Measured scan of single mutants.
Amino acid sequence: SELMNSSKLIRMLEEDGWRLVRVTGSAHHFKHPKKPGLVTVPHPKKDLPIGTVKSIQKSAGL
């Protein structure tokens, strides 16, 4: 199965306009000026399962 580095996923979010608002432990929480909701990324993780990545991307509207 495909894995993604959390840094790469965070870069994709930031390029889309998401900004880090809070860190709780290894959970990084992002908000967007125009899009609704809060997106949480486990970080640092070298090997996020593709299912997790897809669900984060979906929440972020990517």
Rank of each mutant, 00 (worst) to 15 (best):
E2Q: 08
G25Y: 10
I10D: 01
K54S: 10
D47C: 12
G37A: 05
P42H: 05
E15N: 09
V21K: 05
K58P: 02
N5T: 12
P44H: 04
K31T: 13
L13F: 01
V23A: 12
P33C: 10
G37W: 04
V41C: 04
R19K: 11
G61H: 05
T40H: 10
R22V: 11
L20W: 03
A27W: 12
K45S: 08
G17D: 05
K35H: 04
E15G: 07
R11G: 11
T52R: 09
K58D: 12
T40E: 12
V53W: 06
M12V: 09
S7V: 11
F30R: 01
Q57S: 08
I56Y: 01
Q57L: 15
L38M: 12
G25V: 11
E15A: 11
E14N: 10
W18L: 00
L3C: 12
S7G: 12
K46A: 15
M12L: 11
K45N: 12
S1L: 09
G51I: 10
K31C: 11
D16N: 06
H28D: 02
K58E: 14
K46F: 15
R22W: 15
K34R: 12
V23M: 10
S1Q: 14
P36Q: 14
G61T: 02
G25D: 15
M12H: 06
E14L: 10
L3Q: 13
A27D: 15
P33H: 09
A27P: 01
I56V: 07
L3N: 14
K35Q: 03
P44C: 05
L9D: 00
P33K: 08
G51E: 15
K35P: 00
K58C: 12
L3E: 12
K35T: 03
W18S: 00
H29W: 13
K31E: 13
I50E: 15
S26E: 15
P33F: 08
L9G: 01
D16S: 05
L38D: 07
E14M: 11
K54Q: 11
I10W: 02
P36V: 08
E14S: 07
H32D: 01
T40N: 06
K31Q: 14
P44I: 04
L48W: 02
D16L: 05
T40I: 12
S7M: 11
T52I: 15
V21H: 10
R22C: 15
N5M: 11
V23K: 10
D47L: 09
R19C: 14
R22M: 12
I10K: 02
A60T: 03
G51S: 13
H43C: 04
K46T: 13
L3Y: 09
L48P: 02
H43G: 03
I50G: 07
T52S: 06
L9Y: 02
H28G: 04
V53R: 04
L62T: 04
T40R: 13
S59L: 15
K54Y: 04
P44W: 04
D47H: 14
I10Y: 02
L13D: 00
T24D: 14
P44L: 04
E2M: 07
S59E: 11
L20R: 10
S6Q: 02
H32E: 00
A60Y: 00
N5E: 13
K46I: 14
L20H: 04
H43D: 04
K58F: 06
H32G: 00
T24S: 13
L38G: 06
